[in-house]
Design a protein around this nucleic acid. Structure first.
Lengths: 145, 145
DNA sequence: CCGATTGGTCAGGATAGCTGACTATTTTAG
DNA sequence: CTAAAATAGTCAGCTATCCTGACCAATCGG
């Protein structure tokens, strides 16, 4: 490195953190300031469809005990419910409340806003090239792909 | 987004995490598997020069109590010492041990290896363009710049 | 030289992770 | 059809990493 900038991995972290914080601020703005980062990561996974606790734990990369604790908190705060799984008496489906569905949509929209800001700042082609490079890089850096 | 890839910020996180884990694995390989991520972040800051606890805390973005605890652990494990600051009787300088200096150099080298792998995978010009875009993006995403 | 600032610690608490042990239910194999 | 194995989830207890608030000791500025 001939420049005095941090390593590329750190530069990525900086931009990633900025996105995360923008989303969390947006959540706080709409009165969901009580959601923590770990809780947000869980909610994100549930946005497409309800899921069993065990699957949720596996997808977020934590133990089911940890996931269970976070689900407890989110349930107490009214962001989700555990409903019995009709296909398996042992299991329950972790299901977003209407409010949480709305929040997830809002979060996704905020991410789009951030990306469009980046796109404007860098110029469309530089941004698209960067994104393409990151997608390509995922092939050799994502163990969960 | 017309593709089914994660948002750009998440793609960045994936690559960043890969770098971090490569460095931590390398540390484990050379017998420093006892160092945690939080400790590693502190050591990194100390690599250029010794520093007071308060400065260290500020630069790493934690309270001085937290930094103090991490320094306690690292001192017990022989990675650093607190030496009196000759210029201020209240203060002590947190100073890397020889072993820690060697580890920091090794970590920096591992980062270079990872980056050169990325460069080879993407091609030099795509990699350099991506890095340039990230450096540019830092202007609008790094609150500590 | 005395009050304000600064360097650092102590005490206590929250969050987010972990392992291990356990219950209850379902699935599978004999 | 039943006994064993696998699966869903919880309970208890531990650790690490952060936080706030209160405090002591040394230095610095007027």
């Amino acid at each position: 490195m001939t420049d005095d900038q941090p390593p590329t991995g750190v530069l990525m972290f900086i931009a990633h953190r900025a996105t995360e914080q923008r989303v969390m601020s947006r959540m706080a703005e709409v009165g969901a300031g009580d959601i923590t980062l770990a809780q947000a990561r869980l909610l994100q996974r549930l946005a497409p469809e309800p899921m069993r606790l065990t699957d949720l734990a596996e997808q977020t990369g934590v133990t089911k005990q940890t996931a269970g604790g976070l689900v407890d908190q989110l349930e107490a705060a009214g962001y989700l419910r555990r409903v019995p799984d009709p296909s398996d008496g042992r299991a329950r489906l972790v299901t977003l409340s209407d409010r949480a569905v709305a929040l997830c949509a809002l979060a996704a929209r905020e991410v789009e806003v951030v990306e469009s800001e980046w796109r404007e700042y860098l110029g469309a082609s530089r941004f698209d090239d960067m994104r393409a490079a990151l997608i390509s890089l995922r092939e050799i850096t994502d163990p969960y792909r």
